[in-house]
């Protein structure tokens, strides 16, 4: 019905967050993660961009699926469910499937961030031992 709107909304928020983190990193407000003579670690703004790309890409492709199934219209109010008076069903679907999508994408991104942090720490330990 309109489940893609939930991850799309999250994408708007995370994109703004990425821009803020990026500008702080440029200004040097955010603590640099590695000294100058070492290979630079992946910045947090870059890690946030992974989430943004998953959310924007997924939402765009899901929106296309909704157009395919006639659930999204080019005319106001754009959503067939609202036009047909099924707003309550649409909101219920958004709160189950939509929220589930956003949460699962974010959880997988969180796992990716934790894994990358673990790899960076392991690399640091190997360098210290040498």
């Amino acid at each position: 019905m309109a489940c893609f709107l939930v991850p799309a909304s999250e994408a708007v928020v995370t994109t703004i967050a990425q821009k803020i983190v990026e500008s702080r990193e440029k200004k040097g407000i955010v603590k640099e993660e590695s000294p100058v003579n070492e290979i630079p670690k992946v910045k947090f703004s870059e890690k946030l961009s992974w989430l943004n790309r998953m959310l924007w890409g997924g939402s765009a492709l899901l929106a296309f699926e909704h157009v395919w199934h006639g659930e999204v219209n080019p005319v106001f109010p754009f959503l067939t469910a609202v036009q047909n008076g099924e707003t309550a069903d649409m909101l219920a679907e958004m709160s189950t499937a939509g929220v589930g999508m956003a949460v699962l994408v974010t959880l997988i991104w969180g796992t990716m961030v934790v894994a990358s942090h673990a790899i960076e720490n392991r690399k640091d330990k190997v360098e210290e031992n040498i």
């Binding site: 998953m54 699962l104 997988i108």
Partner: peptide, 15 residues
């Protein structure tokens, strides 16, 4: 990442 994002979302839809 775009395809993985869509895959995860359709997986939730399928579940």
């Amino acid at each position: 990442l775009m395809f993985w994002g869509a895959s995860i979302m359709w997986l939730v839809d399928a579940i």
